[in-house]
Amino acid sequence: MKQPAIYILSNKSNSVLYIGVTSNLVQRVFEHKNKMLEGFTKKYNATKLVYFEQYEDMYDAILREKRLKQWKRAWKENLINESNPNWIDLYDDIT
């Protein structure tokens, strides 16, 4: 299902955070989980979906992604903790 979304991935120990934007959240997270994409998430094993927001418009999703990337880590952690305090993998919730 195509719908603009921003997402945050982490690794098993929650020591890294990756913020991305996509038009197909299920497909993109699948690609990260299966290490099909070169880059940060593959290098640091960031395969756990800990947060996401869906949007009607890709422009709004991109703006949100850019803003989140400027946030301090503590702010990002607080955002995740509000909806996912145990930092569980939300992938099964979206498939």
Results as ranks from 00 to 15, higher is better:
L17V: 04
N24G: 00
T95P: 00
L49H: 09
K76M: 15
L90D: 11
D92R: 01
I62V: 13
A74M: 10
Y55C: 01
P85I: 04
N24C: 02
W75D: 15
K33S: 00
A46W: 01
R73V: 07
V50C: 04
P4A: 15
S23P: 00
K33D: 02
E77H: 00
N81C: 08
K43M: 05
K2D: 14
F30H: 12
A61V: 01
F30A: 08
E82H: 08
L49N: 11
Y51A: 11
Y55D: 03
Q27S: 10
T22E: 13
V26M: 09
L25D: 15
N86M: 06
Y55F: 15
R64C: 11
K48D: 08
N78Q: 15
N81A: 09
E65H: 08
E82S: 10
M58N: 08
F52G: 04
M1C: 10
D93I: 02
L49R: 05
E31V: 01
N81I: 06
E56I: 06
K35T: 07
V50T: 03
I88L: 02
K48P: 01
A5W: 04
K72G: 10
N78R: 15
V29L: 10
V21I: 14
Y44M: 07
R28H: 00
E77P: 00
T95R: 04
F52N: 09
T41P: 09
T95A: 00
I80E: 03
E56M: 06
Y55A: 03
I6G: 12
Y59N: 02
I94E: 07
D60C: 10
I19P: 01
V26R: 13
G20P: 13
S23H: 10
V50D: 11
I8H: 09
E53C: 08
P4L: 14
K12W: 05
L37T: 06
K76L: 15
K12E: 12
V16E: 13
I94P: 04
Y55R: 00
V16A: 06
I8R: 05
E31S: 14
P85E: 02
N34V: 06
K42G: 02
V26N: 10
Y59Q: 08
T22L: 10
Y59E: 06
G39F: 09
Y44V: 08
Y51D: 07
Q3H: 13
F30Q: 07
Q27R: 15
G20L: 11
R73K: 12
T95E: 07
T95K: 06
S10D: 00
G20F: 11
D93F: 09
N14I: 03
L25E: 13
S23N: 12
N34R: 11
Q3A: 14
L90T: 12
L9F: 07
K48I: 12
T47Y: 13
N78Y: 03
G39T: 08
V16K: 14
I6R: 13
K69G: 01
D89T: 03
N86Y: 07
E82G: 02
S15V: 00
K2C: 05
Y59W: 03
Y18G: 04
K35C: 05
W75R: 14
R73E: 14
L63I: 09
L68W: 14
Q70F: 00
V21T: 14
K12A: 12
K43S: 06
K42I: 04
T95S: 02
N45L: 05
T22K: 07
W87H: 03
I8A: 15
I94G: 08
Q27V: 04
D93T: 10
S13V: 06
T22G: 13
M58G: 04
